[in-house]
Amino acid sequence: MLHEVKFPSFNNRDEVTGWIYVPACEPEGVVQLVHGFGEHSRRYFHMIVALMDAGFIVAANDHVGHGATAIANDTWGDWGDAGPHTMMEDEKRFKDVVCKKYPDLPYFMFGHSMGSMIARDFSTKYGDELMGVIYCGTTGVFANTRAVREKVDAAVAAGKAHEADPAFVGELFGWMFSRCDEGVKLGNEWICHDPYVQKDHAEDPFDAFTHPCHNISVRDFIDMMLCIEGKEWAEKVPTDLPILLIAGDQDPVGNFGEGVYTCANWLIDTGHDVITQLYPGFRHEIHNYDEIKFDVETTLVEWLTMQL
Rank of each mutant, 00 (worst) to 15 (best):
D165L: 03
D165H: 08
P166W: 01
P166H: 01
P166V: 03
A167I: 13
A167L: 12
F168G: 01
F168T: 09
F168W: 03
V169L: 13
V169Y: 06
G170D: 10
G170P: 08
G170Q: 11
E171C: 01
E171M: 10
E171W: 02
E171K: 03
E171A: 08
E171G: 04
L172S: 08
L172A: 10
F173K: 10
F173D: 06
G174C: 04
G174D: 08
W175I: 00
W175R: 14
W175F: 10
W175C: 04
M176F: 00
M176Y: 00
S178L: 12
S178Y: 12
S178F: 12
S178T: 13
R179A: 04
R179M: 05
R179Q: 12
C180A: 09
C180H: 01
D181P: 03
D181G: 12
D181T: 15
E182W: 03
E182N: 07
E182A: 09
V184L: 04
V184K: 06
V184E: 09
K185V: 14
K185D: 11
L186K: 14
L186G: 05
L186D: 08
G187N: 10
G187Q: 08
G187E: 08
G187Y: 06
E189N: 00
E189D: 04
E189P: 00
E189A: 00
E189T: 01
W190I: 00
W190R: 03
W190G: 00
W190D: 02
I191C: 10
C192R: 02
C192S: 11
H193C: 08
H193W: 14
H193M: 10
H193N: 14
H193P: 03
D194C: 05
D194M: 03
P195G: 07
Y196K: 15
Y196F: 14
Y196N: 11
V197N: 01
V197D: 00
Q198P: 12
Q198G: 07
K199Y: 12
K199A: 13
K199C: 04
K199N: 12
D200C: 10
H201Y: 15
H201I: 09
A202W: 11
A202N: 11
A202I: 06
A202K: 12
A202G: 05
A202Y: 12
E203W: 06
E203C: 08
E203I: 11
E203P: 10
D204E: 06
D204P: 00
P205N: 03
F206L: 13
F206S: 02
F206A: 09
D207E: 08
D207M: 09
D207W: 03
D207K: 01
D207C: 15
D207R: 07
D207T: 13
A208I: 07
F209T: 09
F209A: 14
F209D: 07
F209Q: 09
T210P: 02
T210F: 13
T210C: 13
H211E: 15
H211L: 15
C213A: 11
C213I: 10
C213S: 04
H214S: 15
H214G: 07
N215Y: 06
N215S: 09
S217H: 08
S217T: 11
S217Q: 05
S217R: 09
